[in-house]
Simulated assay, not measured.
Amino acid sequence: MMQLPRRTPEQLAEELLGRKFSELEQEEQNVLRRIAAGTLIGPDADEIAATHASRGDRLADRVASVGGSWGFIIAFGLVLIAWMLVNSHVLEAFGLHPFDGYPYIFLNLILSMLAAIQAPVIMMSQNRQADKDRIAARHDYEVNLRTQLEILRLHRRFDHLIEYLEARRASEAGEEY
Results as ranks from 00 to 15, higher is better:
L91H: 05
G77L: 13
P103V: 07
N108D: 07
W83D: 00
A93R: 14
L111W: 05
G95C: 03
M113C: 13
A75Q: 04
L78P: 01
F76L: 11
V90E: 04
A82I: 11
Y104E: 03
P98R: 10
L78M: 11
A93C: 08
Y104T: 04
V79L: 13
L111K: 06
I74Q: 01
M113G: 15
F99M: 12
V90Y: 10
I105R: 07
I105Q: 08
V90T: 13
F99A: 13
L80D: 06
V86P: 00
P103C: 07
D100S: 07
F76N: 14
L80A: 10
W83P: 00
L78K: 04
I74S: 05
P103G: 08
V90P: 03
V86G: 03
L96V: 09
L107K: 00
L78W: 03
P98S: 08
A93K: 11
L96E: 12
H97T: 15
D100N: 11
I105H: 07
W83K: 00
H89G: 13
P98Q: 08
A75Y: 06
I74E: 01
L91S: 09
F76S: 14
G77I: 09
F106Q: 11
W83A: 00
D100R: 06
S112D: 05
L107H: 02
V86N: 02
A82V: 14
W83N: 00
V79I: 13
S88Y: 04
E92N: 11
G101R: 11
A75S: 15
F106V: 15
P98H: 09
F106I: 15
F99D: 10
H97Q: 15
W83L: 00
G101H: 09
W83S: 02
V90R: 04
V90W: 12
V90A: 13
I81R: 06
V90K: 02
I81E: 06
P98D: 10
W83H: 02
Y104A: 03
V79E: 03
S112T: 12
L85E: 02
F76Q: 12
A75I: 09
A82K: 04
F76H: 09
Y102K: 12
L91V: 11
Y104K: 01
I105P: 01
A93M: 13
F76W: 14
D100L: 06
F99Q: 11
